[in-house]
């Protein structure tokens, strides 16, 4: 009995030692020599593997950061300036601070604003729907509401509002990685400057049809009337193809354009309430703004 146990223990011990030796030799022989700074850099990245930097994941971005000399054009939108400065310090390279950005949905064509004229019965995907036809409303530019943007978001920062059937952004979670921007077949989502105190103004429409056509399809469409351009004192608004666009770099957030827009398609976010004399206007804009405002 004793000898059985002894032999077993010895046998297994020898076997274990042999296998350990084999493992050690193999590990030594096939060892991959890697710049250890890659590991260091990777540990400073958020590890979300979202692809917002343009690389397949945090590891490959870290590799690129280590190997490239000039990293000023490379940016991790999730880690933001903090992470990039830290990495630059660690690698002894230079970065420039960037304005933090956030995704905005440039369509306010909710079920109430934009009448559904047919019913889509294919695969539940915006891309499939966009490849099939112009969409279930008269507006061929607007949101299809099938949530391709939701399914690509790694941060749970975008969701479809059940009432409006439009995607909404959770400002606290959005990291501006840009996945939703790439996923949207209608190119509705835009990364915009987050703005001071998260305040920003944008045109919530991308309809390039003539004013009358756009207005007929959707009550909150931009009709290209240029009232906002006239109101703007900073020349930040351009109108092209019957569609206004506010340049975030020129906009000083004065909110004059919001007040003059006849279709309420310009949206202001996170501003304090207006002065009492503007009371009527305020209610109106809040009504339009709440559809895309973060909850």
């Amino acid at each position: 009995m004793d000898s059985t146990i002894l032999t077993t223990v010895i046998m297994l011990g020898v076997l274990a030692a042999m296998l350990a030796a084999v493992l050690y030799i193999v590990a030594q022989k096939f060892k991959v020599v890697e710049d250890e700074r890659i590991d260091g850099t990777e540990s400073m990245l958020p590890g979300a593997n979202c692809g917002g930097c343009g690389y397949t994941g945090c590891r490959s971005f870290a590799e690129a950061l280590v190997k490239t000399d000039d990293i000023s054009v490379m940016f991790c939108p999730v880690g933001g300036n903090a992470a990039m400065t830290k990495i630059a310090e660690y690698l002894g390279k230079k970065v420039e601070a960037k304005d933090s950005e956030i995704a905005v949905v440039r369509c306010a064509g909710s079920c109430a604003n934009r009448q559904r004229i047919n019913e889509f019965d294919g695969a539940a995907s915006c891309a499939v729907m966009a490849a099939t036809y112009s969409g279930d409303t008269d507006c061929s530019y607007g949101c299809l509401g099938r949530g391709d943007c939701v399914s690509v978001c790694n941060f749970g920062a975008i969701y479809i509002n059940g009432e409006t059937m439009l995607p909404e952004i959770d400002e606290d979670k959005c990291t501006a990685c840009g996945n939703c921007v790439k996923a949207c077949p209608k190119l509705i989502i835009e990364l915009r400057k987050k703005g001071p105190k998260s305040r920003r103004i944008y045109v919530s429409c991308i309809n390039k049809d003539k004013g009358a056509v756009a207005r007929k399809a959707c009550t909150v469409a931009c009709i290209g009337c240029a009232a906002c351009r006239k109101a703007c004192t900073f020349e930040s608004i351009v109108i092209e193809n019957f569609l206004a666009y506010i340049d975030p770099n020129k906009c000083r957030l004065c909110r004059k354009c919001v007040e003059v827009c006849p279709t309420e398609s310009i949206i202001e976010l996170n501003f304090p309430p207006r002065k009492p004399k503007m009371e009527i206007q305020e209610q109106k804009t809040d009504g339009a703004g709440s559809e895309t405002a973060a909850s």
């Binding site: 559904r116 019965d121 294919g122 099939t132 279930d136």
Partner: peptide, 8 residues
Amino acid sequence: NKLIISPS
């Protein structure tokens, strides 16, 4: 009713 649209 509303027309139904789907891919083939």
